[in-house]
């Protein structure tokens, strides 16, 4: 659980760093999208990533089932939460399910229109498959999507904020000194990741576009007018 979690956090760091390019250069971002298109290494990495998510998901449900059994059949009539117990730490499964649901939407919004189109012809517009900024602008021009993504990112922040230090604790790389350090590192890393993701969504929602955006979109619109395949 902790190993798959750390691997997924490293992926998120990579993904978020890539996304920030969409704020600087449309052409640069599309170049990355082309680089990570239907190339063998990108497909292999995608399969590996999907495997990590599935493993993380299976472990989460298996552990939750074991813990539910260990709790016994009777529940306390009165409960109180100590101050040092964070809500997120007790609701990681709930947060994880929100993250998975958000991921489904994200795959529909982007992956299905980009890598999937390249892999399976006739599932969308092939010319737009590597035009990442076009899909970012298209998705976040709708404020509803932006709000949904921000809620999703808030859940992801809570999940990561607890998950990172908790992973280190589980791997034994913690102690009296490192406990507070890992808590601080978790907060900083998860905040950076979420801010990078959120910045792109909010900026595009409020109409921000990089200076070379129009050139890229004009090509995209021309392709879009051409229809599917």
């Amino acid at each position: 659980m902790s190993l798959t979690g750390i691997a997924l956090i490293l992926f998120l760091l990579f993904h978020a760093s890539m996304n920030v390019v969409a704020l600087i250069s449309a052409e640069g971002y599309n170049m990355i999208c082309g680089f990570l298109g239907a190339n063998w290494y990108a497909v292999a990495a995608t399969v590996g990533l999907a495997g990590l998510v599935v493993l993380h998901f299976i472990f989460a449900f298996w552990l939750t089932f074991q813990n539910w059994k260990a709790r016994g059949t009777d529940r306390y009539a009165v409960t109180s939460k100590p101050k040092k117990v964070e809500w997120a730490s007790q609701n990681m499964l709930v947060l994880g399910i929100i993250v998975i649901l958000g991921m489904g939407l994200h795959l529909y919004n982007f992956w299905a229109k980009m890598m999937l189109v390249e892999l399976v012809p006739c599932t969308g517009n092939h010319e737009l498959a590597t035009n990442g900024v076009y899909w970012i602008a298209e998705t976040f021009s709708c404020p509803c999507y932006t709000v949904i993504y921000l809620v999703w990112l808030a859940a992801l922040w809570m999940h990561l904020n607890h998950g990172l230090w908790s992973s280190m604790q589980t791997l034994g790389w913690s102690g009296k000194v490192w406990f507070n350090r890992w808590r601080a590192i978790s907060c900083i890393v998860s905040t950076i990741i979420i801010l990078m993701f959120a910045a792109v969504a909010v900026a595009y929602c409020f109409g921000y576009r990089p200076c070379d955006f129009n050139d890229v979109v004009n090509v995209a619109n021309a392709c879009h007018a051409g229809g599917l395949c």
């Binding site: 813990n67 059994k69 260990a70 117990v85 908790s166 604790q169 589980t170």
Partner: peptide
């Protein structure tokens, strides 16, 4: 039959 630790810190509290 004891459960797994998910680091909620309720125990130390």
């Amino acid at each position: 039959g004891f459960g797994n630790c998910t680091n909620t810190r309720a125990c130390e509290a």
